[in-house]
């Protein structure tokens, strides 16, 4: 995958498959490192499976016995001299952290984060997403719970709402 935002979309899909009602995604650029965390309140990963989740031959998919999402993510971070970790507790949730060394030639560009967020909201309009991006001392936050308060009974995946969200993110999330 050529963009961090594509990996993030892929990793967040795991949280959604785990039945999360809240997915928190944060990007922090500071002190020569870019740290990406995806935290959810889904069903969690049993301790006997957890050590093997970054193994390509561990997967929950049913179409074939290979799953490359987490292995790709781990490799992407580690090949920049960064690190990867995953913590999980059954019934509590999972947190995946990847640290990239800023400016390393193998660190992918962040890419189209607005595209990733719109895709997540469109596919999972009943789930809440909290996105935080901190760079150069400036914070940007998108919390779908705030949007929901304004929208009341109108779903987040209404075409007009998605179009607004896309424009809003593209204008306000300058990376």
């Amino acid at each position: 995958m050529k963009e961090l935002s594509l990996h993030i979309l892929d990793i967040a899909e795991n949280s959604l498959a785990a039945g999360a009602s809240l997915v928190e995604i944060s990007l922090t650029e500071e002190a020569g490192a870019l740290t990406v965390t995806v935290r959810d309140n889904g069903r969690g990963i049993p301790p006997d499976i957890l050590p093997a989740v970054a193994d390509p031959f561990t997967t929950t998919r049913t179409t074939r016995p290979v799953g490359l999402g987490l292995p790709f993510w781990k490799m992407a971070a580690e090949q920049t001299g960064g690190r990867f970790s995953i913590e999980s507790a059954v019934g509590v949730g999972t947190c995946v952290t990847a640290v990239f060394v800023s400016g390393h030639i193998d660190t992918p560009p962040i890419g189209d984060m607005p595209g990733t967020l719109v895709t997540l909201v469109q596919g999972h309009p009943r789930v809440d997403f909290l996105y935080t991006h901190r760079a150069g001392g400036v914070d940007f936050t998108l919390d779908t719970r705030t949007l929901r308060d304004t929208l009341e009974d109108v779903p987040l995946d209404s075409p007009d709402v998605l179009a607004w969200l896309s424009d809003f993110l593209r204008e306000n999330l300058r990376i």
Binding site: L6, D10, E13, G115, Q122, P159, A163, S166
Partner: peptide, 28 residues
């Protein structure tokens, strides 16, 4: 399809195009 295979192959812009095309043509 929005699994790892789809995302890596370019499913995100394809989904965006579906949404845009449906809205642009008033098919929502």
């Amino acid at each position: 399809g929005m699994a790892t295979c789809g995302i890596a192959a370019g499913a995100r812009p394809v989904l965006a195009a579906c949404l845009e095309e449906v809205q642009r043509r008033g098919l929502s």
